[in-house]
Nucleic acid binder design. Sequence first.
RNA 1: GGGGACGUAGUUCAGCUGGUUAGAACGCAUGCCUGUCACGCAUGAGGUCGCGGGUUCGAGUCCCGUCGUCCCCGCCA
Length: 594
Amino acid sequence: MKLDLLGDRQRTHYCGELRKSHAGRTVFLAGWVARRRDLGNLIFLDLRDHTGVIQVVCNREVSAEVHAKAEEIRAEYVVGIEGEVVLRPSDTVNPQISTGEVEVMARTLLLLNEAKTPPFPIEDDIRTSEEARLRHRYLDLRRRRMQHHLRLRHRASLTVREHMTAHGFVEVETPFLTRSTPEGARDYLVPSRIHHGHFYALPQSPQLFKQILMIAGYDRYFQIVRCFRDEDLRADRQPEFTQVDVEMAFPQRDVLFDIIEQLMEKLFALIEAKVRRPFPRLSYDEVMERYGSDKPHLGFGLEWKRVNLPEGAGEKLHVRQPIKVLRVPGWATAARSQLDKLQDLARANAADWFSYAKVGDSEIQSPLGKILGEEAVRTLAAGAEAGAGDLVLLLGLKSGSGAPGPQQRLDAASGELRLELARKLDLIKPGEWNFLWVVDFPMFEYDEKAKRFAAMHHPFTSPREEDLEKLESDPAAVKARAYDLVLNGSEIGGGSIRIHRPDIQKRVFSVLGLTPEKARERFGFFLDALECGTPPHGGIALGYDRIIALMAGESNIREVIAFPKTASAVDLMCDAPAPVDPEQLDELGINIKN
RNA sequence: GGGGACGUAGUUCAGCUGGUUAGAACGCAUGCCUGUCACGCAUGAGGUCGCGGGUUCGAGUCCCGUCGUCCCCGCCA
C-alpha cells in the first residue's frame, strides 16, 4: 500500500472540537481511524484524536481518489483529512457524540500510516484482560479513559506546583542514585561500575535530603518525585511511585495542615468536587477504638465502643475485658448465615470471641441471654446505644490465648468487620470525600520477632515534647508528632515534625537499638549536618498516585500510571526485568549465583 | 513466603456427572450495498484448550507439578 507524506500540512482543528459554527470552513484533521462504515460508493470514517471523534464522508462522486483510498483503510490507520465541515442532513444527526451535528466532506485523504489489527478494540467500556492491556500499553493508553486519567494527572501536577509556589515553596531535585539505608523498606540497588562491590540505592523517599535542605536554609521545599521500594505490590502499591514531598522550617502543624487542605481543595476542584475544610482531626488512639483502623473510612457510621462485660461475665464466658461493641442500625433482621460469616471473618482476624444481640420492640434476642441473663444483655445493648430494630455485634478475645498485643488484635479485627459490614449493607457512597487527619501516632511499635522497638513512622520523627522524659523509661507510651492524611479509607499522606536537636536524635536512635557507631555508619552525614544549625522543621509526603486514582474514580493506581508494573513487578510491555549480557556484569564485577 | 480467583479462537466468554468433528458473540478476510454511526447482507478463515507429567479404552473436563494475570495476608521505617 502506497503511503502519503504529511509534507508541510498543519492540523487546523482537533476532531472533537468541530461544531455547527464551523460549517463551511475548510479544515485539515489528523488522527486515527476508529471505525469504517463502507456502504459501497459511500464510506464513513470515524476519525479520532484525543479530543474526540468526527465523522468523515468519503463519497465517490465527490472524489474517486479519496474513495479508493478509504476502501483500503482499516482500524487504527493514521490519516490526514482535508475537507469542508458541513451540516449533516437533519435526519442523520447523531446526538450521541459531541460533533454529531456536523461531518467533514473529505477532498483529500492522506494515508500516513497503516496499523496491524489491534489485539483489542480501542474503545471505552471494553473489558480487556489486564495482561493484554499492559502488554500493548500504547494501544490501551490511546483509549479515552486513559487519555483522561493522564491528562487529569498533568493538570493536578500543575495545581500542585502553582499552589506550593504561591505559598513560598521551592522545588528542588534530589538524587536518585543515593545511599542505601537498611531501615524501612527494601532498597532497589544499582551497582557501581567505578567502585566494584559498592552500590547506590534508589531512594525510598527523599527524607534525609529534604531535611538537609531545611538545614541549608531553603525554608520551604517541595518536589513531585519518584520513590522506589522493593516490596510486594498491591492495588495501591507499585515499586516506583510518585510523592508530593513537602518540608518546611519553623513549622506550625496547623499552618502545614492548612496549606495541604487548601491543596486538596484545589485538586478536587479539578473534578468539580467540593471539599469540606477544615478536615477533622482524630488521635490514633481514638480511631483505633472507634474504627479499628489507622486509616478509617468516615463516610458511614458504624463506630465501635470498648466496654466491659458485667461483673463476673468475663469469667463465665472466658473472655478478656474489655470487649468491643458495635451498633448496626436497623439490621436486627440479619440472617444466621450472615452472622456466621461475620464470625468467620472475626476469627480469621484473630478475634476468637464473637456474639450478637438483636434488639426488638420489647424483647432482645441473643445467644448470651441464656448464659448472662436478659438484663445483662440489655445493659450491653444500651452501652452500644442500640434501639429497637438494631443489631449489636460483640467482639472479644478469649482469655487464656496468650498471644501478644491483644488490644491491637481486637482493634484490627473490629476494623475488618466494620468494612465488611459497610460493603454488605452498601453504605459506601461514591462521590463523597471524607478527609481526615490522624494525629498523635505512637512513636514506637514493638517488633516481636526482633525483640526491640521500631519507629512507627521513621527514626527522624520527633516525640511529643511532653513525652520526652518517658523516652527511655516507657517507649511504648511515647507519642510522636506524626500525622497521616486519610481519604475515604486510603492513606494518602503522612508526615511529622522532625527531630532537629542532635541530642534527641541520639536518644531516639538508642531506643531503636542503634549504637552510636551504627548510627554514624548509616547516617553519619546527616548527623554531621544536624549539628550545623538545624532549624525546627517538619513536613509531609503525599501519595500522588493514590490521590489521582481517587480523583479518577479508580481503585488501582495502575490506571493513573502510564507504564505500570504487574503484581509481580514486571513490565509486560518492555519485558523488564531481563537478563543482561555477561560483559555488562563483568564490567560491574558481578557474578550471578547458581 | 502464604491464601484465594482466573487461564479455551485476535478479544470477551460458554463448554454438564470424562465420550464422536471444541462452540457463541465481537473482531478479521472476501463480495454486495449512497446516509451509515455497534451500518446491513452473504460467504469464509481462524484453536499446541497456558505448559509438563499422570490416571483412563478415552482428558478442555479428574489428579500432581509448573508458569502467567488479578486480589488479599505477611512485607511496605
